[in-house]
């Protein structure tokens, strides 16, 4: 279970998150919607452990443990996975090399043995096949020259291999056409499990047609302005965010 309690975060003296509270239960898919610049990506980065943010107050608990004390590596190994809005290109690092390094790093951190190469290859091929990630993509340097859709599929492939406790999808739908959106959503849905939760950050209701959320939170001005069920997303699609930004002001 992920619990964000009274989280205050600033960057360069500018307040971004202003006492945010949020709970995502095991097995839950929570969507966060909200206008541009309201701190949605900041929330995802702060949970994943990016260092450029100043956490002034509050806690982020994963199964009761405050992960704000940990660095990004430790959080990943504890089960946090951030699917980046803009996945980084890493020239010179073959995708397979990277995948193996990540899987082995997490296995070591959890006291498990490293995967043997044939097992690793099999695992990757299976997961890749479901996401339409071809062998040629796996041979290329990580994300280099990938289209927007390919990059997002690669993020979901990593999530499928790393099996996190919580998957944070930061605008995974941006830059995707309908077909790619469906593939990515199917990938996420296949990973839904009783002990795994998701935080789906998006601007649009469209993604939520494919990944059905249990709860929808509206974020405005650095905090959660309203929480509801899937119907809230439909309501937003009609009325926009103006009411919420006004309400939060």
């Amino acid at each position: 279970m992920l619990e964000v309690k009274n989280l205050h975060v600033s960057v360069g003296g500018r307040k971004i998150l202003d006492g945010l509270n949020l709970t995502v239960k095991d097995g839950e898919v929570a969507a966060i919607m909200g206008p541009n610049g309201t701190g949605k990506s900041t929330l995802s980065y702060v949970i994943a452990g990016r260092e450029d943010y100043e956490v002034e107050e509050g806690e982020v608990l994963l199964d009761g443990v405050n992960i704000l004390e940990m660095d990004a590596t430790e959080r990943a190994n504890a089960g946090v996975f951030l699917a980046f809005q803009y996945p980084l290109e890493i020239p010179g690092v073959a995708t397979m090399t990277f995948l193996k390094a990540a899987l082995n790093a997490q296995a070591r951190a959890r006291g498990q043995g490293e995967l043997q190469t044939p097992d690793f290859m099999k695992k990757v091929r299976e997961a890749a096949g479901k996401l339409g990630v071809g062998q040629d993509m796996l041979k290329r340097p990580l994300n280099v020259g990938f289209s927007g859709g390919e990059k997002k599929r690669m993020e979901i492939l990593q999530m499928a291999l790393l099996q996190p406790k919580i998957g944070i999808l930061d605008e995974t739908d941006s830059g995707l056409d309908i077909d790619a959106l469906r593939i990515v959503a199917d990938g996420v849905n296949a990973l839904r499990a009783k002990d795994r939760s998701f935080l789906v950050i998006t601007h649009y209701q469209r993604l939520l047609d494919y990944i059905k959320p249990d709860t929808v939170h509206v974020m405005a001005k650095g905090k959660i302005a309203r929480t509801g069920g899937p119907e809230l997303a439909l309501e937003l699609e009609k009325s926009g965010y103006a009411a919420f930004t006004g309400e939060a002001a």
Binding site: R50, A72, F84, A105
Partner: peptide
């Protein structure tokens, strides 16, 4: 940014 990306996948710094 690249270092953070790799750390976010479990690699140490």
């Amino acid at each position: 940014n690249q270092i953070f990306y790799l750390q976010a996948r479990g690699l140490s710094r």
